[in-house]
Amino acid sequence: MSSSESATGKLKARRRFLNALLGASTAAWLVSVFYPITKYLIPPESAESNVSSVKVGKKSDFKRDSGTIFKFGRKPGILLHTSEGDFRAFYATCTHLQCTVQYRQDFGMIWCACHNGKYDLNGVNVSGPPPRPLEPLQVTIKGDEIFVSVQA
């Protein structure tokens, strides 16, 4: 084998290696691009970006003269079923120091355990420290189901 032949053989081998390397790194690069994109395309568990409306449950789930805390997006809400049969909902965050309020059947009022703040069934602060009424939410009843949404 002459020296020039071996040189061209070496050159060929080098070129083949370079092409293979180029192919491999391109493939790796494509993976590094498509991996995040594919991940991005898979919808996350909570497939909605924001909560403007929540299905709280069925009418029959809530006894009269009771209140239920539910999750409204990232804030707690309270759904009241009054003795008269009305459904009302408010953000359940006390306007005094942001404790979560509850319904007190014995008073027939919304009550904050932290400092004995009381709100009437319209969410109006009637006694104790709360400086403002509770922020109201909208209740919509479709058939038997209760939906709560932000007030328009």
Binding site: N19, L22, S25, W29, S32, P36
Partner: peptide, 23 residues
Amino acid sequence: RGFAISTLILSLLAVTLYLKIRS
């Protein structure tokens, strides 16, 4: 870490491209 990996890959690609251009 992801960025480091992708940088590694992109550098490899860049280097091979450079060699290819040279060749």
